[in-house]
Amino acid sequence: MLTTQERSAIEEEREHYPTARAACVEALKVVQRTRGWISDEALRDVADLLKMTLDELDGVATFYNLIYRRPVGRRVMLLCDSVSCWIMGCDGLKEHLKMRLGADLGQTSADGRFTVLPAACLGACDHAPALMLDETLYGDVTPQEVDRILQEGS
C-alpha cells in the first residue's frame, strides 16, 4: 500500500504531464525516497495508480540504473568510475571501500549500512575522483576522505 504522502506526491508529479505514464519514473523515485528501493509490491501499487501493467512499469524500472529493484543499504554511495575519475584514481577508492565495507561494487555491507554502486560521470571531473553519498557530492576524494565520509554517513 502506498502511503497518503506517497500518493499525493505522485499525484503532484502527475500534474506536470499530459499522460499518467509520463510520471512513472518520478513516481518510482517518490516511493524509493521513503523506502530505499522498489519492491515487487511497491511496483504493483505504483502501476495500479498510474494505470500501467506491472510489465510496463517494470520494463521502465529495470531500464534506469537509479531505480533500485533490489534492497539497498541505509545509505547509497555512487562512486564515479568514469574516465576523469579513473585517471585520478577511482580504482584505488574502490579497493579502499571494498576493504572498509567488505562489499564490492553493487553490494551492501554486511551491517546493511552502505551500498556502493558504480556511477557514470558525476559532472565533477575537475574535482576527480568524485562520489556521492545519498544526495551529497564529494570531490577530490582520497582514501582518508572516504573514511571520514563513511564515519559521517553512519
Binding site: 568514469s82 574516465v83 576523469s84 557514470a120 560521470c121 559532472g123 565533477a124 571531473c125
Partner: peptide, 11 residues
C-alpha cells in the same frame, strides 16, 4: 542530462 564523461559545464 549532462553525463558525457569529462563534462561538467552545464552543471
Amino acid at each position: 542530462d549532462e553525463m558525457e564523461p569529462g563534462s561538467f559545464k552545464d552543471r
